[in-house]
């Protein structure tokens, strides 16, 4: 890319970042999206989306591609699969370094780095990823035909995916750290009335073991401290997301959950630096709310650079 000086740089290419890109480029603002993955962020990982207005049913991949195409059509520059190596946000001119060599500058920055699947962080989890440990029921469910599996988590994703996995597995045991669920009533009822689903509450997994593939897991009762070994073929983990704010923590104020703190205009603690989408402190994380954030951040960023 010849030009390295932009009006606004957006870091992150999920629904918040792409929406900001669409609004900014359509307003003839010289904008660059730098994205460490492919366009769409977590949205790409969603098999079917049925609650995005305007589409009765669309895959996350298709919606991502459409948003990206829309942004590019208005002249938005997008650099995907880059490695973000340094960011300087405190000065009037912001600097974003990628791949340890290319430095891009702008008058304002929008951080829209989203979140990533939360991991249990226990022994064997990484070793058995794709070999019995999974974070995607629609991708890997059919490897567990007539097998016994665990689902870890107590939110909507965990309970809904547990129900969906009963079409393959002979038995699904939901392991959850509390004695209540955070999911909505409908999801809880559906899981409870499914005869293939059992529950182990107040518990968590503390380790994964096996050889070529996963063979057993240790389950710890968080109230009694008792730990038991369970033979198991597969474990699906749905315990939410963590905001990807680590890279900015020296400059941007975050809360104890590492979410970026913003005001109603989505301004961070640094003038000219905005944040949008799943990376910010908020209650509801949906594609629709990310799109809304992207819009608000973009419009406020335009106002900021035109001052």
């Amino acid at each position: 890319m010849e030009n390295k000086n932009f009006d606004i740089i957006i870091i992150g290419g999920g629904p918040a970042g792409l929406t900001a890109g669409i609004y900014l480029s359509r307003a003839k603002v010289n904008v660059l999206i730098v994205n460490e993955g492919i366009s769409g962020g977590q949205m790409v990982l969603t098999h079917q989306i049925a609650n995005y207005p305007g589409f009765e049913n669309i895959s996350g991949y298709a919606l991502s591609k459409t948003m990206e195409k829309q942004a590019k059509a208005f002249g938005c520059n997008i650099l995907s699969n880059v490695n973000l190596t340094k960011v300087s946000l405190n000065n009037e001119i912001k600097k974003v370094e990628i791949n340890s060599k290319d430095i891009y500058t702008s008058k304002a920055v929008i951080i829209a780095t989203g979140g990533k699947s939360r991991e249990l962080g226990v022994i064997g989890e990484k070793d058995f990823a794709g070999k019995g440990v999974s974070y995607c029921a629609t991708c890997d469910g059919d490897f567990f035909q007539n097998k016994e599996i665990f689902v870890v988590g107590g939110g909507n994703s965990a309970l809904e995916e547990a129900v969906s996995l009963t079409q393959y597995a002979s038995k699904v045991t939901i392991i959850h750290e509390f004695d209540y669920f955070q999911a909505n009533n409908h999801a809880i009822e559906e899981a409870k009335k499914n005869s293939k689903i059992d529950f182990i509450l107040n518990s968590t997994i503390t380790g994964f073991y096996g050889e070529e593939s996963l063979k057993r897991a240790t389950v710890k009762n968080l109230k009694t401290g008792e730990e038991i070994d369970k033979n198991i073929d597969g474990v699906f983990i749905f315990i939410g997301y963590v905001p990807q704010s680590e890279f900015f923590k020296e400059q941007i104020t975050t809360n104890s959950r590492r979410e970026i703190i913003v005001d109603k205009n989505l301004t961070t603690n640094i003038p000219g630096v905005f944040a949008a989408g799943d990376v910010i402190e908020k209650r509801y994380r949906q594609i629709t709310t990310a799109v809304s954030d992207g819009t608000v951040a973009a419009l406020n960023a335009i106002e900021f650079i035109q001052k």
Partner: peptide, 16 residues
Amino acid sequence: GRMGPMCIPVYGEMEE
């Protein structure tokens, strides 16, 4: 793979 969430990012990387 398939056109699923875990596969699509890998195809994207390969294309680039």
